[in-house]
Design a protein around this nucleic acid. Structure first.
Lengths: 250, 250
DNA sequence: CGTTAATTTGATCATCTTCAACATGAGTGG
DNA sequence: CCACTCATGTTGAAGATGATCAAATTAACG
């Protein structure tokens, strides 16, 4: 899943970040800002060395420093209760913001890179400051947070009311859509997370996920080779989750 | 659950709303504002006639108008997919804000009063305007939304990884804490929602909830008479959900 | 290559759901 | 105040979905 590598390379060469040139601008926070405002915005965007697979971006308990936007790669966000019973809350793809869990009173989740991943760092104080001059930014930030809330809530529906198969299918459809939104194939993609991660995220056992992949393959809906997915019958998949299309399985 | 009735009566007598005099101010959005700023804030707070039991505050599909704060009573927020398979997303108590699901692109949930309920209405545009002069307000609103996200996320953990009993206990402990925060008994309270609602919220069947209440009673942890709950052994209940204490079961 | 982790497959088991019947209880009109 | 009704809640028995345990296979990586 080496997304927008070209952009990254260009940015690194320049030694600075440019939202204007970023291929993800349409998906990201500065969406809808004019050139002038976007310049102002990108002046506060920070950047770090890429994270390696398995590396933590932040940990539960950490103080809140900034929101992050994924530039390339992907990551998972995990709640870790004391008893070690972890729960993956979501996966983040390029153009998506994460880190909201920390705003209230420090981070309650841990964010872990699933592959080599680059991020933009948005210190919230600085964002707030810029927003004084660019009111649209506040509004947009509210939007992004509201979308996060909606996504989590459709996930609640998925976990509370849907069967194992529905969950996996909804998950795959969500991924498909997100790849499509980023200009990639909606039928061929490769998963950056393990079966175990998928199972955990969907509230299932890894074995169940494995069996479900088998069942969907046999039904002729898709082909699986390890983490490579090829969806053969997108509409067939959609039909498989009755009325569950709203669930976005973030 | 006739909470803060006194305050309400006073407000209605005045013919206007006052956050300064509201007993819920410490829990609500203007928390932490000084007198001056709070005056400015309350000037935009609207109010409607009380909602009756079962009445909709807003419906999925409605355009977004405002955020709401509960002044008295309680309500549930429901996701209703086309197939009729509803899912309760949360319950709101006095001092709590709701309506965030609408900010992004119109409401995705329906909010239904569980009893006679009064609300404060906060038109987001007006809030944004006031926030230009009162920067702390933006920050506070981000906090409230972030808390909503955290609550939803601990709910994901609850639904994905916990047994039926853990879920019910976590739910009761959450209620207990919220009553306590509002100055009510943490051991004696009465539920404003049906068993069916509780079950739906927790991703269970109503029968299961009924049986669990029975089991917890037999274990001497609490007493149940219809919707009246008396918790006999709070620590016992807490011990029953290992390390799940973070789950707030909104 | 060899070693370890990830995934698949099979068999058994537990939890919770579903269906069905029954009890309780609140509200209404006689 | 009682009888009736509809909604809500409880209890029992059977069944299903998915978890768990165990073992085999494959893939990943030094």
């Amino acid at each position: 899943m080496a997304i927008s590598t070209a952009t990254i390379v260009a940015d690194l060469a320049n030694g600075k970040l440019s939202c204007r040139d970023c291929s993800l601008a349409e998906l990201c926070l500065p969406r809808g800002l004019d050139i002038k405002d976007m310049e102002r915005f990108e002046s506060i965007v920070g950047q770090r060395a890429p994270y390696k697979r398995g590396e933590n971006i932040y940990r539960a308990g950490d103080n809140f420093h900034a929101l992050y936007a994924v530039k390339s790669g992907s990551l998972k966000t995990v709640v870790s209760p004391p008893d070690g019973n972890e729960q993956i809350i979501g996966f983040s793809m390029p153009g998506e913001l994460f880190g909201f869990d920390g705003i209230d009173d420090g981070h309650t989740c841990t964010a872990v890179a699933l592959e080599r991943t680059t991020l933009c760092e948005l210190p919230l104080d600085a964002v707030a400051e810029v927003s004084q001059a660019v009111p649209g930014l506040h509004r947009e930030l509210y939007r992004v947070m509201a979308r996060e809330i909606s996504v989590d809530q459709s996930m609640l529906l998925l976990l509370a009311r849907r069967t194992a198969e529905d969950r996996l299918v909804a998950f795959l459809l969500s991924l498909s859509k997100r790849f499509a939104d980023r200009g990639f194939s909606q039928t061929d993609f490769s998963l950056s997370m393990s079966r175990h991660d998928i199972a955990n995220y969907l509230g299932l056992a890894a074995e169940t996920v494995s069996r479900l992949f088998g069942r969907l393959s046999e039904a002729g809906l898709l082909t699986v080779h390890g983490r490579k997915i090829h969806i053969q019958d997108l509409d067939g998949l959609r039909g498989r989750v009755d009325g569950c299309n709203t669930a976005q399985a973030s």
